[in-house]
Design a protein around this nucleic acid. Structure first.
Lengths: 116, 116
DNA sequence: GCAATAGTTCGGCACTCTTGAACTAATGAA
DNA sequence: TTCATTAGTTCAAGAGTGCCGAACTATTGC
């Protein structure tokens, strides 16, 4: 828990890594939950129920290294925020198209309020 | 070469499998080449240069089973066509957004003419 | 200090990617 | 028909990666 988080610079974010990160149903669910909140959310809250912590940690790492989320420590917890704004500057419309496709084909991620 | 090709029905195509298939740089390159042609293209033509045939075959199988391409035997060769029209009916804008992001961030796939 | 909470790291099994080698199928020439 | 060529598939194996339980670390609060 001591190693600092590594976030790629915008120019180092690649299309492949973004698609790879979102191709996993668990990670897609996490991103959808984060999007539906629109505010920093800690790891447990955004992850699907009953997901082992080590698996959560792994998925957050993948999402972070793909450039999709930004993680910050707050006391004992880690809060995650989407970097969709940045990514949308680099790949316009990409993440929204995937989120839209997810909402069309997948069950509601959260029952939560839609992103502001 | 005798087993018939299996193509999923439109309702069996999932977002995850589409994203998974496109998350691989080799497969994304194949799809981009197919899109740039806009006509049925055989396997060797659409695959990157110097890719072993067995690897090609594997990637085409993944793309086929994800529902992204349709394959048909024509004599000794197999021609592949995109199913983007069908997929766009199910996930509107998804594949175009990925293709657009690819053209923004990746080197030109082919030097070929853009899709009609 | 001790317990609880929130994540991380490690080890191992399973699955995937890639490739060479061997194989099958269709075509064309002799 | 036979043979060679072309195009792609199937198999097996090594390298790499993902997922999860178990053990660990760090912070908070009593």
């Amino acid at each position: 828990m001591q190693r600092p988080f590594v976030h790629p610079a915008l120019e180092d974010i690649t299309l492949e890594s973004v698609l790879y990160a979102l191709a996993d149903p668990t990670r897609l669910a996490i991103i959808r939950k984060l999007a539906s909140r629109g505010c920093p959310t800690n790891c447990q809250t955004a992850a699907p129920d009953n997901l082992p912590k080590s698996t959560q940690s792994h998925h957050y790492q993948v999402l972070r290294e793909a450039g999709l989320i930004r993680s910050e420590r707050r006391g004992t917890e880690v809060v995650n925020t989407l970097r969709c704004g940045e990514i949308d500057g680099k790949f316009p419309g990409l993440v929204p198209a995937i989120m839209k496709a997810a909402s069309l084909s997948l069950p509601d991620c959260d029952g939560g309020k839609p992103a502001a």
